[in-house]
Simulated assay, not measured.
Amino acid sequence: MYLHEQEDILFEEWKNSYPSDVRENIVIDGLCHNGELYKESRNSYSGNEEELWATAKRKILFLMKDPNSNPGEDYREWHWREITAKFFKVIFNWLQGLSEITPDYIPLLENDSYLDPANQVVLKYPLAIVNVKKISGSSSVLNNTLYDYAKRDAPFLRRQVRDILQPNIVVCGGGSGSVLNIAKQYIYPDLTFKTINNWCFFSEEQDLLLINSWHPSAIISDTQKIDDMMSNVADFINKTHSCIFR
């Protein structure tokens, strides 16, 4: 069964677990389309993202807090090849940097290492975004609310992340460490993660890296969001025997 088909089955069950008056606010996410645009460039067809994901040595998943003001939409169908919002530009840069960093090469903004426009990365590397809270929200969400949704939907989150997507790198986007803690507590509760540095947490058992990142919209410089991540991942590479970056 194709990956998108597995996602569709999961989300049908997920929606049905909520009251009928809530279901229309649920936003579907997962492996994002990279195909041709339709509906006047507002959505995109599925392209070769499943093939890219299946063959990628580094399956990078971005675990975010919640979708903003997008009730009833399907993240996967967004026009990723045309998106220029700063929030997603940071994610595009993270995707490219984590896909290309090696023991001998650190992609940095100061070295002009990134594609311009950044959105073209989806044609080269597969983009997967999973929101902890699937109910469309606003510009912010309280951490207590996020934990409540994570606890309620933990079985579905585990199926989406561990059973269907099976990433080996999970970028935990912000929440002052809340998203990282949710990943540990509700998605990977059976695994032990060793702290390598302030950014990198490693399960030797699964060869799985959790990255405690800034939120893409954090009011700090792009250098802090992107170059600091790459520098700390380089430190992770030097300190471990992980096969992810070899």
Rank of each mutant, 00 (worst) to 15 (best):
Q160M: 02
N48T: 06
I169G: 00
I129E: 04
N119R: 07
K225R: 11
M229R: 04
I106G: 14
Y114I: 09
N68C: 07
L61Q: 06
G35K: 11
L191P: 01
N111G: 09
F87Y: 14
T223V: 15
G175H: 03
K151L: 09
N70V: 08
R81W: 11
I106K: 14
L191D: 08
F245E: 07
Y114R: 13
V132H: 00
G177A: 05
D227M: 10
R42Y: 02
V141A: 09
L3W: 11
I91M: 10
E24M: 04
R246F: 04
I164R: 13
Q224V: 12
E73Q: 07
N43R: 12
S203W: 00
W199M: 15
T223G: 14
F236V: 14
I106F: 14
M64F: 02
N131T: 05
I182L: 01
D29S: 10
I196F: 01
Y2W: 13
I237S: 03
Y147L: 10
S136I: 02
Y149D: 06
L10V: 11
H79S: 14
M64A: 03
N144V: 12
Q6T: 13
A128G: 08
E7M: 13
N197T: 05
D66N: 12
P167D: 06
Y75L: 12
S138A: 08
S17L: 03
A56I: 10
D148C: 08
F88V: 15
K184T: 13
N238M: 06
I182K: 02
L31R: 06
S217W: 14
E51W: 01
D104G: 15
I196L: 02
F88D: 04
L165H: 07
H241G: 14
E7F: 13
G47I: 04
L127M: 09
S44V: 00
L61M: 09
C172N: 11
L10I: 02
I60Y: 01
S242I: 03
F11I: 10
L210A: 10
S136T: 03
H79F: 11
L127V: 06
E82L: 14
A154S: 10
Y114E: 01
C32Q: 08
L180Y: 00
E205P: 09
G174H: 15
F156N: 05
S17I: 11
E82P: 13
K124E: 04
C243E: 09
C200Y: 00
W53H: 08
S176M: 12
D222R: 15
K86N: 15
M1R: 06
F11D: 11
E204F: 03
T192R: 11
R23K: 09
I60N: 03
S242C: 03
E24W: 11
I226H: 00
T55A: 06
S46K: 11
L142G: 09
D66F: 01
N168W: 02
L209I: 15
R162Q: 05
